[in-house]
Design a protein around this nucleic acid. Structure first.
Lengths: 343, 343
DNA sequence: GTGAAAGCGCTAACAG
DNA sequence: CTGTTAGCGCTTTCAC
């Protein structure tokens, strides 16, 4: 089952030259005569020679590959981010190695360890829900591994970061609900430890405050697994529905929470937006086709992936250690549809 | 920006032993004394030694990574497949390198060439729409590269394949429409050259025939880019809508075609299923939340990814050349909802 | 039981 | 201009 590749040696033998000559000719070195180059190139072509990147990696101590860790690939937001990552990586000649944490800290540790030991040149990471201890990432970072964090980030690690303005997104969404006459606005959020959760909830809180609306602790439900487990969402939504002062709208702070919430409401036959208004973070491209058309805060996911990759490759390819890091904050888009407009 | 790793040499130096002894001790060779092993292991632990897989790859001519080529990552079906691939690969200690063809033949060629030259141990491929010439894949296959094809496959390459019973899925879906009183059933399909297109259309045709329904060529519209380009879908749907004998139902043969068709119909204010019934291949997990709830033929995407990976690793790890190949045909599921039921 | 040496494919310093 | 040699990290004969 091996796959015998043509090496520089084969060309050398075929041409009666030394391997170094071949190597130089292939790299178009100026110290090789035009004729020899010509000869070598032709022969390489004929034998279908392909340089062995493994050998190169061993020599150069870089693999031209980058590792990506997300909680889940089969998620509209993350798959779009990966799409963006892949497209830039492709343009720059890098491979993308994808792995999933499934929101598990242990799995994230293993993934990262695996990727770094596989000599990826850099890492693009969105933290797992369970992750509170960051020493595994810090250790890599301290040892010089280029890292870019996106979406679920942490201030504890000083490196490039790419996020959207989560505060703004949630603030605007909440305000949108308020302006549309909703008064008892609940929030369905992910784990409290996630950066996106606190940022988004802060926007939600401040919008309520700014409009003099009451903020009630029981109006904020956390789903530790952020929607990965549907039953958790269902339970949380049900809890909201049984409050004495039942909310008249819900804002959801992530993709899976949004669909989980919608699914629960629809299964219970609750009419949206009449009984309950809905707005949520979501990157589904069919939000407009949903019943009712879903008002969403959409993240420029592909852009985020592209930005993260550009920043990462900047680190990877930098000659000198980078000390100044950038937090790139993109703008989420509020796509207004029927689910959050009282009729 | 380098990342200085501890090597076997460092341990050797620290312990005053030779690198070969260290190597053997680490691999728990029987020709090393228990004490030495103990010593080496402790030292390795202390120095946080991690074997360099690149060096190993160079030696063993395998990289413990597999390459995946799909047309698009940000697609519910493919992201679910990749999820399945990643999970098995992870369990078996392999990395997954993902790349996208974006339905382009040229891009597929480059992707494959890139991946194989990066010494992936095997490839999991779903063909691009544009691909009709298979020589690039054949060449790899002939040179011994383990390959598993899924979803969009070809009979021209004799290797393991994983698909669903596309014929059955389309047949059942069409029959479902017929049994629900639809009589003029159109099909919106992808490129004619794709295996999934012909298989699914065959099921569609045969179901029509079996029920004595007229088959009209103009009822079958092909979108060459299979929904990647929305305008193409829109145009095709519009063409169907302007036929003198306007269809009363449409079956769509892929994820993007399904959403594209639905989007077009909704934008035009056409009521589903009253004016036109709809059924389509789709792996969106929110098909039930769409308006109207969408009847879909759902593929067991994650299973497919898992099966493909298991078959691939079987090839990769086989000692002797494999001559017998398997075509694994999974069963698609018809999820019946409102969009295909006359009311 | 342990070490020396060769080699995986390639590059680069050093000789001619 | 071209060849020789060493070396990237590791395994694996072959010696001792």
């Amino acid at each position: 089952m091996k796959f015998e590749a043509v090496t520089i040696k084969d060309i050398a033998k075929a041409l009666g030259l030394s391997t170094s000559t071949i190597s130089r000719a292939l790299r178009d070195s100026h110290e090789i005569s035009a004729e020899t180059k010509q000869l070598v190139l032709e022969c390489a072509e004929k034998l279908n020679y392909k340089p062995n990147p493994i050998a190169l990696s061993l020599k150069e101590k870089r693999s031209r590959s980058i590792g990506v860790v997300v909680c889940e690939i089969a998620n509209s937001f993350f798959s779009q981010v990966i799409n963006g990552i892949e497209s830039i990586a492709y343009d720059r000649g890098y491979n993308v190695i994808v792995s999933q944490s499934h929101e598990s800290y242990d799995r994230e540790v293993v993934d990262l360890q695996f990727l770094s030991s596989r000599s990826v040149d850099g890492l693009i990471i969105s933290l797992a829900t369970e992750t509170t201890d960051l020493s595994h990432i810090k250790a890599l970072h301290d040892r010089g591994m280029p890292i870019v964090l996106f979406d679920r980030i942490t201030e504890e690690i000083n490196t490039h970061k790419v996020i959207v303005d989560n505060y703004r997104g949630a603030y605007d969404a909440t305000e949108h609900l308020i302006k549309n006459g909703f008064k008892r606005i609940a929030a369905l959020a992910g784990s409290e430890f996630l950066s996106i959760t606190s940022e988004r909830l802060a926007g939600y809180n401040d919008a309520l405050k700014a409009h003099g609306l009451e903020y009630s602790k029981e109006y904020v439900q956390h789903c530790y697994y952020g929607g990965m487990v549907f039953s958790e969402v269902e339970e949380a939504v049900n809890k909201l529905l049984t409050l004495k002062k039942r909310p008249d709208a819900i804002i959801t702070t992530s993709d899976k929470l949004t669909t989980g919430c919608l699914r629960t409401l629809k299964r219970r036959g609750i009419s949206i937006p009449d009984e309950i208004g809905m707005i949520g973070f979501s990157n589904y491209d069919i939000a407009e086709l949903v019943d009712p058309p879903l008002t969403v805060i959409r993240q420029p996911a592909e852009e985020m992936g592209k930005a993260a990759t550009e920043l990462l490759l900047q680190l990877v390819e930098s000659k000198r250690p980078v000390k100044e890091f950038e937090k790139r904050v993109l703008t989420p888009e509020l796509q207004v549809r029927a689910s959050a407009i009282k009729r």
